[in-house]
Design a binder for these strands. Structure first.
Length: 645
RNA sequence: GCCGGGGUAGCUUAGCUGGUUAGAGCGCCGCGCUCAUAACGCGGAGGUCGUGGGUUCAAAUCCCACCCCCGGCACCA
C-alpha cells in the first residue's frame, strides 16, 4: 500500500492556534505515523501557503515586502510543528521556485485541455493603493439596512449578500479612499463540464468519508457548478504564463493545493530521485489523504478534484478528511479578542508536547465541533494518562525493579493468560480498524481500554502476593506485563511519540511495526532500565500557571523592526479630531482635520468616542492615525498640523 | 431567507438502515487491594432519549408541526 498524506497548507500571515493544530496537522501526523507502523510506503507532505491578498496587505501595512513577512512566519510555524513532533517528510513553501514552476505546468495542461475560458469583470480599483480590491477589501453603506460598515461580499448586520457595486459610498479598507470601477479581463476555470464526473466521484465515497463532508459536497454540487475566476491583479503570487496576463497572478486558491504536488516534487528532488514523485500522484495504487478544516471542504472535494480532472494526468484524492472546528471555553477562538490557546508559547508551558497532543486528540473535531475546557484537560491528563496508562507502566517497571532487579524473568503461560492475550489482541484489531477509518479519537479510547485491561490483569493476578507464595507464577505475570508495556509503547507511538521514545529507551527495544505486538519481544534475561514517571500529575495551580502563558497571543507586529530613519521620512502630523461617531461596539468613525482637508478613519476602540473629540492624533498625510489598534493622542496644547519628529 | 448538523443520565457523549432491561467515560456512593504519581480492581445509584402529534404489534431511531443551539451561503484565505 502506498499512502500520500497532506495537511492543509497553513496561511502564514499569523501564528497558529490550537484550532489549526487539531484541524489538520495533528490528525494527519497521527495517521502518517500509523501508516508507517503498518509498513505502508508513506509520504507526509506539507508547506506554507504564502500568496494572496491578505499577505500582500498585511505586509504593506507593516511596510515590508511580502516575502519578508512570510520568511518570519514560516520559521515560527515550522518551529511549532517541530515542537509538536509532526513528522512531515517535507514542509515546503509556495513561494519557492519549484512551486511556481509546477503551478504553471499544471495550469498550461488545463489550458490545453480547454477548461480555461476568458471573461470580463467590473472590479473596484483603488487608485491610491494602486490595486484591485477583493470584495472583502471594500466597505460602505448597505443598500438594504443602511449599516455603514457593510463589506463588499456581505452585510454583517442584515446578512444580505452583496456585490461591491451595490455599496453606497464605497471605500477601500486599506486606505479609506473611494475606489473606482474598472472593467478587466480575467481567466475562469470552467467547472461546469466536470459536474457529472465530480458528482459520481463524490457518491463513490459514500462509505468512506465523514458524513458531513459528503453532505456539504453534494449540496454544493447540486446547486450547479459555474466557471470560477482564477486570476488576480496582484503582484505577489504565481505569474500567469500566457499572453495578455503578464501582470496577473493566480488566485491563491488555485495555486495553494498544487503546493501538495510541488512539495512532493521537492522532497524527491532532495533525495536525488526526481522522477519518483509521480508514483505518489499518478499511480492509481496510491491513496491520497487530505486533512483539512471544514472551511476548506468545498475546495478539496470540488474545486481541487476538478483541477486534477481538467489536468487529466492525476489521481483523485482517496479520502478528504474534513475536520470541524475547535472552540475554546464556550466561544470561538479569536486572536483579536485574545480568546484561545496560541501555539508560540506552548513550549514555555513546561509540559511535554505529548501532554498537549493527548488532550488535543480527544478534541479532534471528527463528527462535530468540539471545545477546549481546562477542567477537562486536567481530568483527562490525571485520570487517563497518569492514572491509567502511566500507572500500569510505572507499576510494572517498579515491580520488576524491586523484586527482580530489572532482569526479565522466565515464564510459563497458563490458559487464563492466553485468554487474556486473546482479548488484548481483539482490542488491538479494533484499534487498527478505527484508525483506518480515521476515527482517531475512538482509536485512542481503544488504547485506554487496552491499558485498563492491563491494569485489570495486574490487579487480578496479584503478583505482589504471588511473589511470597508462588514466585514462579509471579514471574510469568510480570513477564507478560513488561511485554504489555512494550505493546502499549507501540500503540501509543502515533499519538505520543516522545513517550514511546522514552519507553524504547527504558525497555531497550526498538519500535518497528504494529506486528511486533504478538511477538513477546522482551525476552527472559533482558535488562530493563530505571522506572521513570512518564506523565506528571497536574493540579489547579499548575493549570493556572500554564493558562496565563499560553492564552496570550504574540503581537507579531513587534517582530518587524522599523528603522527610525524610515519613520522620519513619513510626513507624520498631529491633527485635531473634529468628529467621532460610533459605528458599532468595536468601531468608531473619526474625522480629522489635516491642513484644510477632513479625513475619515475607522478606529477599533471600545472607549468612549466623545472623549476623543478635540484630541490630537498622529496622522500621516492620508489620515491614518492608528498604530495597531491604538490611537496615539496628545493632550498638551499644540500647534495644529505640527510635524512629528 | 435558504441549506446542513444537532438537542440522550450532573457533565461529555455512543446508538438513530425501527425490535431483547438505551450503552460508555468523567463525577458521585459503597466494598476490596497496597506493586503503583492516594494510583488499581469490583459493585451501585442516576435517563418519561427538546416539545406536541402521527405511522406501526413495536420508535431515541421513520413522518409532520413547533421551540432552541451551531455552522455554511462561494471569488474570503
Amino acid at each position: 500500500m502506498r499512502i500520500l498524506i497532506t495537511a492543509a497548507l497553513p496561511y502564514v500571515n499569523n501564528v497558529p492556534h490550537i484550532g489549526n493544530i487539531v484541524g489538520s496537522h495533528l490528525p494527519a501526523d497521527i495517521f502518517a505515523r500509523f501508516c508507517r507502523l503498518l509498513g505502508y510506503e508513506t509520504l507526509f507532505i506539507g508547506g506554507s501557503d504564502e500568496h494572496g491578498t491578505p499577505i500582500e496587505v498585511t505586509a504593506r501595512k507593516l511596510g515590508i515586502p511580502p516575502k519578508k513577512l512570510c520568511d518570519v512566519f514560516y520559521e515560527i510555524h515550522k518551529e511549532i510543528y517541530d515542537w509538536f513532533n509532526f513528522s512531515y517528510d517535507n514542509f515546503s513553501r509556495t513561494s519557492r521556485e519549484i512551486h511556481h514552476q509546477t503551478t504553471k505546468e499544471f495550469f498550461l495542461k488545463m489550458y490545453e485541455n480547454g477548461y480555461i475560458i476568458e471573461g470580463e469583470l467590473n472590479l473596484p480599483y483603488c487608485e491610491n493603493d494602486k490595486m484591485f480590491l477583493p470584495d472583502r477589501y471594500v466597505y460602505g453603506t448597505c443598500p438594504k439596512c443602511g449599516y455603514e460598515l457593510a463589506r463588499g461580499d456581505q452585510c454583517e448586520k442584515c446578512g444580505t449578500l452583496l456585490n461591491p457595486e451595490d455599496l453606497i459610498n464605497i471605500k477601500c479598507t486599506i486606505c479609506n479612499e473611494k475606489p473606482i470601477f474598472k472593467k478587466v479581463k480575467h481567466l475562469f476555470f470552467d467547472l461546469s463540464k466536470l459536474q457529472k464526473k465530480l458528482e459520481e466521484w463524490i457518491m463513490s465515497k459514500k462509505d468512506i468519508w465523514y458524513e458531513h463532508v459528503l453532505n456539504l459536497s453534494l449540496s454544493i454540487i447540486k446547486q450547479g457548478l459555474k466557471p470560477r475566476c482564477i486570476s488576480r491583479d496582484l503582484k505577489w503570487g504565481v505569474k500567469i504564463p500566457i499572453k495578455g496576463y503578464e501582470n496577473k497572478v493566480f488566485y491563491v486558491w488555485f495555486d495553494a493545493p498544487i503546493g501538495y504536488i510541488s512539495s512532493t516534487r521537492e522532497y524527491f528532488k532532495k533525495q536525488n530521485k526526481e522522477k519518483d514523485w509521480e508514483k505518489f500522484w499518478k499511480d492509481k495504487e496510491t491513496r491520497i489523504y487530505h486533512f483539512i478544516g471544514k472551511d476548506n471542504i468545498p475546495f478539496h472535494t470540488i474545486f481541487w478534484p476538478a483541477m486534477l480532472l481538467a489536468n487529466g494526468e492525476y489521481c483523485l484524492p482517496y479520502f478528504v478528511v474534513g475536520l470541524n472546528y475547535l472552540n475554546y471555553e464556550g466561544d470561538k477562538i479569536s486572536k483579536t479578542r485574545q480568546w484561545g490557546i496560541f501555539c508560540e508559547n506552548l513550549p514555555k508551558s513546561g509540559l511535554d508536547s505529548d501532554i498537549w497532543r493527548y488532550y488535543l486528540i480527544h478534541l479532534i473535531p471528527e463528527t462535530s465541533d468540539t471545545e477546549w475546557k481546562w477542567k477537562e484537560f486536567k481530568e483527562r491528563v490525571n485520570n487517563e494518562l497518569v492514572a491509567n496508562i502511566g500507572n500500569f507502566i510505572y507499576r510494572t517497571l517498579s515491580f520488576l525493579k524491586r523484586y527482580f532487579n530489572g532482569i526479565v524473568p522466565e515464564y510459563e503461560l497458563k490458559v487464563s493468560d492466553k485468554e487474556f492475550l486473546e482479548e488484548f489482541k481483539q482490542k488491538v484489531n479494533e484499534y487498527k480498524k478505527l484508525m483506518l477509518k480515521l476515527r482517531i479519537r475512538d482509536s485512542l479510547r481503544k488504547v485506554l481500554e487496552i491499558s485498563y485491561l492491563c491494569n485489570k490483569y495486574f490487579q487480578e493476578n496479584e503478583p505482589w502476593k504471588l511473589i511470597e507464595k508462588d514466585r514462579k507464577r509471579a514471574e510469568t505475570v510480570i513477564y507478560i506485563c513488561i511485554n504489555l508495556c512494550f505493546y502499549l509503547a507501540i500503540l501509543l507511538e502515533p499519538f505520543l511519540p516522545n513517550t514511546s521514545k522514552k519507553l524504547e529507551r527504558i525497555l531497550n527495544k526498538r519500535i518497528k511495526s504494529l506486528e511486533q505486538i504478538y511477538q513477546f519481544n522482551i525476552k527472559p534475561g533482558d535488562k530493563i532500565g530505571e522506572p521513570e514517571i512518564l506523565f506528571p500529575k497536574i493540579d489547579d495551580k499548575k493549570i493556572e500557571e500554564i493558562r496565563k502563558i499560553v492564552t496570550k497571543p504574540l503581537n507579531f507586529e513587534e517582530l518587524f523592526y522599523i528603522d527610525v530613519n524610515d519613520l522620519m521620512k513619513l510626513n507624520l502630523r498631529l491633527c485635531k479630531i473634529v468628529e467621532a461617531k460610533r459605528l458599532d461596539t468595536n468601531r468608531v468613525l473619526i474625522k480629522v482635520k489635516v491642513d484644510e482637508n477632513i479625513k475619515e478613519v475607522v478606529l477599533n476602540t471600545k472607549d468612549d468616542e466623545k472623549k476623543l473629540i478635540g484630541k490630537y492624533g498622529v496622522c500621516t498625510e492620508d489620515g491614518l492615525l492608528t498604530v495597531g489598534d491604538k490611537i496615539i493622542t496628545v493632550d498638551r496644547n499644540i500647534e495644529e498640523n505640527a510635524r512629528v519628529r
